[in-house]
């Protein structure tokens, strides 16, 4: 273990997160953050499901290849769009209040 087990409040997780900013100056970035966060969530879910199905042997080789291609391109596209709107990977997340964040941090 790098550090001992001592109480250490997770401040970042507890701080009120900034809301999606939809002022006239940056409405594009605010909306891009919302849409790309949802896309990233879906991508992660699809990837897990694809791996599960691959492990379960219910896919043909061609289906695995097609699914992998689609997920690979989707990931690249999300990163590309995030860059375009000056969003970092950490920005692609939403604070859902009492139930935490959309994606694990």
């Amino acid at each position: 273990m790098q550090e001992s087990l001592e109480p250490k409040p997770e401040l970042e997780a507890s701080l009120p997160q900034s809301r999606i900013d939809c002022t006239p100056d940056n409405i594009e970035q605010g909306l891009a953050k919302l849409v790309l966060s949802l896309m990233e969530l879906l991508r992660q879910l699809l990837e897990r499901q694809a791996i599960r199905r691959m492990e379960g042997g219910s896919l043909t080789d061609q289906q695995i290849e097609d699914m992998g291609q689609a997920l690979m391109k989707l990931e690249a596209k999300i990163h590309e769009l995030a860059d375009h709107f000056s969003l970092s990977p950490a920005d692609l997340n939403l604070d859902l209040g009492p139930i935490g964040h959309l994606l694990e941090k």
Binding site: M1, L5, E47, A50, I51, M54, E55, D61, I64, E65, D66, M67, G68, Q69, A70, L71, M72, E75
Partner: peptide, 27 residues
């Protein structure tokens, strides 16, 4: 009690043209 285990380096994004290889690396 919580134990957070992290990789020192960012996980590599599979660099491949193959969709199958991409999924296998993730797995």
């Amino acid at each position: 009690l919580e134990v957070l285990v992290s990789a020192l380096e960012k996980p590599r994004t599979p660099r491949t043209e193959s969709g199958t290889e991409y999924l296998r690396t993730r797995k």
